[in-house]
C-alpha cells in the first residue's frame, strides 16, 4: 500500500468511526461542537505557569477516548503531522526563561521548562479534543451545528465541498501515482522531472471529476444548500454539555486556589 492509499484508508477509517452506533456519536452535534470550542478556549486561557489546572483538563480527552471507545494509539497516529509542531512550539522557552520557579528535591524547575510543558499540553489536549469531535461527529453534523450557530451558509458549503472533493482528489492522486509506479518499478518515488506533469494532470483530472460531482448535484436540485437532518435536543444532550461546562468552569475558576 502506498502512502496515498494509506491516507485514503485513514480517511475511510475516520468515516467508519463517525458512522458507528455509539451514544457519543448520537449526541447533538451542536453540543459536541460547543464543548470542543469551549474546551480549547479554556485550555488556552490558562497562564504559562498554570500546569495543575491544565493537567486537570486532561479529564475531558481521557473520558472521550475511554468512554467513546476510541483508540488512543490510532488517535495519536492520525495526529502525527500536527503533534511535532505542537511539541516544537515551546521548545526554546527553557533557554530564555531561566528563573527557577520550583524545586523538586535537587531538581530546579525553571519558568521556561514549565511554560514549555504547559504550551505542549495545551496544544496536545486541544488536538485530542478536536479528534474526539471529528471521530464522533460526521461532517454533515458538524456543518449542521455550524449553520445552527449562524456561520454563513457560503462558508459551511465550502467546508462541506472541500471535504467531499478531498476524497475525489485523493483518489485521482492514488491512480496517477499507481500508474507511474507500475511503469517505473526501479525508481524510488517519483522522479522530480515528472512532478510538474503529474501535478498538472492531477489537478486537471480532479477538476474534471469534481465537475461531474457538481453536475450530479445540480441535476438533483442542488441550489447552494445541503439538506441536513434536524436533530432534536434530548435531555442527555443537555446533561452531557452542562456537566462538562460546569467542570471546565470549576477548573477555570478554581485555579485561583491552586
Amino acid at each position: 500500500m502506498n502512502s496515498i492509499e494509506r491516507n485514503l484508508n485513514e480517511l475511510n477509517k475516520i468515516q467508519n468511526l463517525q458512522q458507528r452506533s455509539h451514544w457519543m456519536n448520537d449526541l447533538h452535534p451542536m453540543g459536541k461542537l460547543l464543548l470542543g470550542v469551549v474546551y480549547i478556549l479554556t485550555v488556552v486561557s490558562f497562564g504559562k505557569y498554570e500546569l495543575v489546572p491544565i493537567i486537570m483538563m486532561a479529564v475531558y480527552p481521557i473520558f472521550g477516548f475511554i468512554v467513546g471507545e476510541l483508540s488512543f494509539r490510532e488517535g495519536i497516529y492520525r495526529m502525527r503531522l500536527i503533534l511535532p509542531l505542537i511539541l516544537f512550539v515551546g521548545i526554546l522557552n527553557p533557554f530564555f526563561d531561566r528563573d527557577v520557579v520550583l524545586r523538586i528535591g535537587n531538581l530546579s524547575v525553571t519558568g521556561g521548562m514549565l511554560s514549555m510543558l504547559t504550551l505542549m499540553l495545551k496544544g496536545f489536549f486541544s488536538v485530542l479534543s478536536a479528534y474526539i469531535l471529528i471521530a464522533t461527529t460526521s461532517i454533515d453534523d458538524i456543518c449542521y451545528a455550524l449553520r445552527t450557530i449562524h456561520i454563513p451558509k457560503v462558508i459551511v458549503i465550502v467546508i462541506m465541498l472541500i471535504y467531499r472533493y478531498f476524497g475525489v482528489m485523493g483518489n485521482e492522486a492514488d491512480r496517477i501515482s499507481t500508474a507511474y509506479r507500475l511503469r517505473a518499478p526501479r525508481q524510488n518515488g517519483i522522479n522530480y522531472k515528472a512532478w510538474g506533469t503529474l501535478v498538472g494532470q492531477w489537478l486537471l483530472r480532479s477538476m474534471d471529476r469534481a465537475n461531474i460531482v457538481y453536475e450530479s448535484m445540480l441535476l438533483r436540485g442542488f441550489k447552494g444548500d445541503f439538506f441536513v437532518h434536524k436533530k432534536g435536543v434530548r435531555k442527555t444532550d443537555i446533561i452531557y454539555v452542562a456537566f462538562w461546562l460546569l467542570l471546565f468552569a470549576a477548573i477555570a475558576f478554581g485555579r485561583r486556589f491552586m
Binding site: 463517525q18 461532517i139 454533515d140 467531499r164 461531474i212 453536475e215 450530479s216
Partner: peptide, 11 residues
C-alpha cells in the same frame, strides 16, 4: 452518469 463513483458524493 457513466462514472457512478463521481455521482455518489454523500456518506
Amino acid at each position: 452518469f457513466q462514472d457512478s463513483e463521481s455521482q455518489l458524493f454523500l456518506s
